[in-house]
Design a binder for these strands. Structure first.
Lengths: 148, 148
DNA sequence: AACTTTGACTTTCTTTGACTATTATACACC
DNA sequence: GGTGTATAATAGTCAAAGAAAGTCAAAGTT
């Protein structure tokens, strides 16, 4: 079995109980006798939001990598939805998606409204216009992936 | 290892009751077995005005460092809170706000989590770093205003 | 070709220590 | 007793060193 797979398994075993792990990158690297960046590789390829993982970290003394499992129990094909969304989104297309999600009971109205605000032009006023639709898509997808 | 976190926690424990602490820098440093300036570091990074702390001090004999917490729950209304937030926000400061909002029942956990994701570095990956904290602040404030 | 492993380089956060600034107190002098 | 001055007791500042984690591309595998 591949090293990355072993590391993945190791991490998932820990997460199983509490839906959360806090790793020390270099310790883990030492444990598996690999370079630290291998850990990043494993995380980047296996603990992605599409699979229901949320990752946060801190550098410096006492640093950590924290992986949180967000409950995916509902739909199985979020990644299909995400794929379809693409990497640019106008405000009006967001509305269409949200209405769709509501009608399929994927989201409730309150949540949908919150998302709408988060990705509105008002929220993104400081993002330059050329970039805005792709930032909007990022936030939108991040939210969808983590909410559904 | 995470000395600063310990010191932060220690101070916050004391503040909790009375919304105020008066510290003796060198005693505290001795207690935590560190150099006095570490205390300044902790204060400078964790007890900032954006988070509702006001710090005053005096040197010389009988000197002190006094940290006063200006309670969010005492804010008259949302606009006070928004004002306090300022126009730049790091991810970690967002976390602190969200925890605070939860503890004052201003937000429920689910909503807070959604906001956290909406303004995470992951969502904002395409916003260039110089701008990111101010975009984050915009989205955050927009959401707060519309949710509360 | 796609996936994995490795390593050099970067960025961020923390700890430490030398040096500086301010305030209180003790003591001398009138 | 008031005034000025030295000394001690604090706290502040800043930069260097240390401790993680992140990035990215080259090399290796399948």
């Amino acid at each position: 079995m591949k090293l990355s797979d072993l590391i993945e398994e190791y991490i998932k075993d820990i997460i199983e109980d509490t839906d959360m792990v806090e790793l020390n990158r270099s310790d883990l690297a030492t444990k598996f006798n690999c370079v630290p960046s291998q850990i990043n590789y494993v995380i980047a390829t296996r603990f992605i939001p599409e699979l229901g993982f949320y990752v946060e970290s801190r550098r410096g003394g006492g640093g950590y990598i924290r992986i949180i499992k967000t409950d995916l129990s509902k739909s199985e094909n979020i990644s299909d939805i995400i794929d379809k969304i693409g990497n640019k989104l106008s405000q009006s297309v967001v509305d269409v998606y949200l209405r769709e999600f509501i009608s399929y009971n994927i989201l409730d109205e309150k949540t949908a409204n919150l998302i709408k605000i988060a990705v509105s032009d008002k929220s993104l006023a400081k993002v330059d216009k050329l970039n805005r639709d792709s930032v909007r898509a990022d936030i939108f997808k991040c939210l969808i992936v983590n909410l559904i």
